Simulated scan of single mutants.
Amino acid sequence: MSSFVIKSIGNVLNATSLISSKYATKKALNLFASPRKGRYTDAQIPTMQSAFFEELDFNSGSIATYRWVGKNKTILLAHGWESNSSRWSYILSALKAEDYNIVALDAPAHGKSSGRQFNAVLYSECLAIVAKKFKPEVIIGHSVGGMATIFSMHNYNLPFVKKIISLGAPAHFTGVFSRYKTMMGFNCRISDGLDRLVLERFNKPVDYFSAANFSETISAKGLIIHDKKDRIIPYEDALLFANRYKNSELISTTGFGHSLKDKSLIPKIIQFIN
């Protein structure tokens, strides 16, 4: 979506807020939580056809899971916003070569999972269900998949998870929400209204949802990988994790972008897992 279209939508909602700030705010939150991409394209489907597919029940819907069976450690893969499990195709061969038991899931409203709405809290609930079924020793999460992993580890009993690999993950929801508000150019009526809606729906203020803060309670060993020039999630978020996630190490890259799909990182990931 072009910046012109984004600002135009923001202007329309700002104008609407003069008549009904409540209506405009609900529309703004719905827009924020509605992925525009993430369902499988024809080009992505062949990657997933080699996996054993299974759907798990969740909130009157389903979570799509994929398994490549191995005899070594179980690894759970959690993709990010407007993506799906095919994003792991760049690393699958290397993980299979280690004979890992690989599990991936599609987030709510992504891939083949049901739903139209998405947020990190909802994703963390899905992750907990999948984790409790397959009991991974390691979870690898990209972007909001990394944030949701931390939320899940903090809120649910997952003692079998011994290691977490976080790739370009946001450290706190406050930053994500703030960047959305700025991008859309929302006025104070909508910006303040969004904060109130979060409080109403989750019984917690926006600043409560801090993956960096939650990581202080996690005993599983962590590997944080983040690019210094990440244009989606600021590198400062990685520094927050490194400061608060005591049982972790940080690998900083330059030029790999938000996706962090550079193959030079794969040996480091496998070394950490082993």
Rank of each mutant, 00 (worst) to 15 (best):
S166Y: 09
S93C: 03
D106G: 02
I270A: 11
G115S: 06
L260Y: 07
M184K: 06
K268N: 14
I269Q: 14
V161S: 02
S178N: 15
E249T: 12
H110R: 00
P35H: 13
I218P: 05
L92V: 10
R196G: 07
V176S: 13
Y66P: 00
I91E: 09
Y208R: 01
T182G: 07
I165H: 10
K162Y: 11
S178Y: 13
S60N: 15
L127R: 00
K204H: 13
S113K: 05
R201I: 12
N101I: 10
Y23H: 06
S2P: 11
K96W: 02
K71F: 04
I45L: 14
T182H: 14
F186S: 09
K133I: 03
F173M: 10
K204T: 09
S50F: 08
F272S: 14
A78R: 01
I19F: 14
D192Y: 08
V130N: 01
G255P: 05
F241M: 10
C126M: 02
L95V: 07
R231W: 10
I273Y: 10
Y100N: 07
S20K: 07
I232F: 06
V144I: 15
T254V: 09
A51P: 01
H226G: 08
K96A: 02
F272Q: 14
L18E: 02
S60F: 13
A148M: 03
M153E: 01
H79P: 00
L13S: 03
M1A: 14
G222E: 04
E55K: 11
S259I: 04
S83T: 01
K22F: 05
S152C: 05
I165D: 04
K7P: 03
K204W: 07
D207L: 08
D230C: 09
N72P: 05
F52D: 08
F118C: 01
A169S: 15
K261W: 10
A171K: 01
L18Y: 07
V176F: 13
K204Y: 09
N187S: 08
P205C: 11
D57H: 12
K96M: 05
